[in-house]
Nucleic acid binder design. Structure first.
Lengths: 226, 226
DNA sequence: GAGCACACTTGAACGTGTTCAGGAAATTCT
DNA sequence: AGAATTTCCTGAACACGTTCAAGTGTGCTC
């Protein structure tokens, strides 16, 4: 578990930064977000409390780091499925299952993480136009899910699908956060049921009969995002 | 602006409680949630800091009170539309517009409020089965939206519709929270566009052709809620 | 290599939400 | 009415996230 992005920093500083991130993630996992204090994170990283704030302007910013690392691991975990499957439904299903697989150790307190996504100020907000590295990277993965598939779709659908799939994945996470079933069985079931439906919808969107409907919907989406 | 529910308390205590709630809501509106400190809330209410915690076990619990009062005012504001309109789409549209109307003074920091709804521990959580007075009361309003309408629907739809409409209203609020357009124009547009669509879907759900589809969907919903 | 600029680091201090041992006031009991 | 009990109230104290004035080190310039 190491830091992902670390621009223009002296080697020593980079190492310090990484130590803080590592300590934070370990403590997050061990104790949860709230119970992991900045004092202990800094202490475990072998630096002063104030120093942690030199690298991260707030405790919440450490969550961004969590997202980035989670994404890197999610990406790696998705490789196998994306290399194997060509059918859109299977690719989506595999990617989402990998997402939940990786989040498992954090379920107890993932709510504390992902509730921030609902805030307008958060760069993870589904509606804000401002981008965050974590969000963009995640959408990029769903672009690969889309592009690498054998599914045929119109250009207007192809353009919007990755972001829609990402939005859908956020919904899955929201559901998972609240899922008390053992092993998150219900969430996996939700994925298994809905992934093929999404693929079917995409396939159906090519029907000439639905041309105007699809246009209406895409217009609505663009409208709401504008 | 007065407190709503206040069970088995001595008159004096009830008054104290109400004073705290009033002070809290005023400060929330004036400064936002974070900037309104418990010390100042208590001070304005004319009680000690600690005393506020006798009535509310946390600052977050004051938000519940906010929900209740907002609901009472929303209910009152919806009366007119619900008395006038019989068509489901119009009833839903009017109710949702009233909801956003009433929230207007709080938009600046409503995100801080409603992000809690995404947490599993929150009683407002859309997925948890545990009920909160605020949530139940709100669903009850959407039951009135449903029952008082001229729309015909199957029993299985009628039973589930109020909660679905409530869930939809939460989605509208989520959108509104992120809506930067002047006067929340975009949110109102969303309401105007989607309300008739919902009504149409309900109407269409009676078609024999869609019987099995509707059953599939209701089964999925029940499944996910179980 | 002396001085300098700047990146990095420190820990005490601030204001916050929350707790708690204890005190005051009301209510009930005898 | 007086005692006992419960309800209500207090303010100091705690741990937390965060800030900041002041330090330390590192590399660069001349």
């Amino acid at each position: 578990m190491t830091s992902v992005a670390a621009p223009e920093l002296t080697p020593r500083a980079r190492q310090t930064r990484a130590a803080i991130v590592d300590a934070a993630l370990v403590l997050f996992r061990e104790r949860g977000y709230e119970a992991a204090t900045m004092r202990e994170i800094a202490s475990r990283a072998g630096v002063s409390t104030g120093n942690a704030y030199y690298y991260f302007s707030s405790k919440e910013e450490l969550i961004q780091e969590f997202y980035l690392i989670r994404h890197a691991e999610h990406l790696a975990a998705s490789r196998a499925v994306l290399a194997r499957e060509t059918e859109l439904g299977a690719r989506l299903r595999g990617t989402l299952r990998a997402l939940i697989d990786g989040l498992a150790p954090y379920q107890a307190f993932a709510g504390t993480f992902y509730k921030h996504a609902a805030e307008p100020s958060s760069p993870l907000s589904p509606f804000s136009k401002e981008s965050s590295p974590a969000r963009d990277a995640s959408i990029e993965l769903f672009r690969e899910v889309t592009e690498g598939s054998s599914a045929r779709m119109s250009e207007e659908v192809r353009q919007r699908l990755p972001e829609l799939l990402w939005l859908f994945s956020m919904g899955v996470i929201l559901y998972w956060v609240h899922d008390p079933s053992p092993g998150s069985a219900r969430t996996y079931h939700l994925i298994d049921v809905t992934a093929p439906v999404v693929a079917r919808l995409v396939a159906v969107s090519r029907l000439p009969m639905l041309r105007s409907t699809v246009r209406d919907i895409t217009r609505l989406i663009d409208d709401l995002r504008a």
